[in-house]
């Protein structure tokens, strides 16, 4: 039989032990607040400064020496075109490399070394990619200080992210599904195209968008390859103008991107340019959030029909 005194002792122990629960809960909440509050304050500050500046003109005007006339037309068009090149280069390369490593590569020390290096590549400072790209794309291949060079540079930067995301989503597919496909008599390519890619596409896409969201804000490597800070024209539209531009002439055009436009404005002494920078920053954050929203939506839709 349990004596009343024992029960009292047990309760005392529990009460003392639970103090640590409370202590950690408070500590955890405070840590969370530091992060969330800091971001919220920064974002609100930027929004309060920048949002009143947003108008249709702001999106359709080129940069100007007068702050109230300046706009982000060349910057957002440049960002979208650079991102397009980045995606077109990085997605096929990254997915193919990930699929190769998971499904085709023999497991030996060479592939082990490649694996370790891919994880390390993700940690290299982006400016190093900029330097590499300056030598390789700008000078060696002669692509110049163009949208193509910038897109390929950012593609290199996010390639490891896409490779890792591809491999992880492939590994999340149960072994039994994999074996089921082979047991039907499928070749490796049939297994990849009929099962592996469709079932891992949600995860791959999430990785792609996370990578793109990182790339969209990158400034250092783009400055390194020589993006201009003042661009008052758009890249040539395919087949437009006189003489008519070619389909892909735009990829060799000089360009600027959102973060560089912001950087340029923040370095001006006039307060009115700081407001422009805040407005552009707000647009950039909005673009990033929109991409993440798209990732969540697509993941939900692609996963809906996948149950093991």
């Amino acid at each position: 039989m349990l004596k009343a005194a024992d029960l009292g002792a047990i309760r005392a122990i529990i009460t003392r032990a639970k103090r640590w629960d409370l202590f950690f809960a408070v500590l955890g909440l405070l840590s969370l607040m530091v992060g969330v509050l800091t971001f919220t304050v920064l974002f609100l500050d930027m929004a309060i400064q920048g949002v009143p500046r947003l108008s249709l003109d702001f999106f359709t005007n080129f940069p100007s020496r007068r702050a109230e006339n300046a706009g982000i037309l060349s910057a957002w068009v440049g960002t979208i075109l650079v991102m397009l090149v980045t995606a077109l280069a990085a997605v096929p390369l990254g997915v193919a490399a990930g699929v190769y490593l998971e499904e085709y590569a023999p497991k030996n020390w060479i592939t082990d070394i490649i694996e370790i290096n891919i994880s390390n590549l993700a940690g290299i400072p982006s400016i190093v990619y900029g330097l590499l790209a300056l030598g390789l794309f700008v000078y060696y291949f002669g692509f110049g200080q163009s949208i193509l060079s910038a897109g390929l540079t950012l593609a290199l930067l996010i390639l490891p992210v896409i490779i890792v995301a591809t491999r992880e989503s492939i590994r999340a597919i149960p072994q039994s599904i994999h074996e089921g496909s082979y047991a039907c008599g499928a070749t490796t390519w049939q297994t990849v195209s009929d099962h592996i890619l469709p079932y891992s596409s949600a995860g791959i896409l999430t990785g792609v968008i996370i990578g793109m969201a990182r790339a969209i804000g990158e400034t250092a490597p783009i400055i390194t390859i020589g993006a201009l800070t003042f661009i008052a024209f758009l890249p040539p539209m395919p087949f437009a103008g006189d003489p008519a531009a070619g389909m892909f002439e735009w990829i060799f055009a000089p360009f600027t991107v959102m973060p560089i436009q912001m950087f340029n404005w923040t370095s001006r002494p006039e307060a009115a340019f700081t407001v422009n920078a805040a407005a552009a920053g707000f647009v950039l954050v909005f673009m990033t959030l929109a991409m993440n929203g798209l990732a969540i939506y697509l993941r939900y839709h692609l996963r809906k029909n996948i149950k093991w």
Binding site: S176, I177, G180, S181, A183, Y199, N305, I306, K307, W308
Partner: peptide
């Protein structure tokens, strides 16, 4: 197989 493994 041991556990039913229909494709999704």
């Amino acid at each position: 197989f041991q556990k039913p493994n229909p494709f999704p």
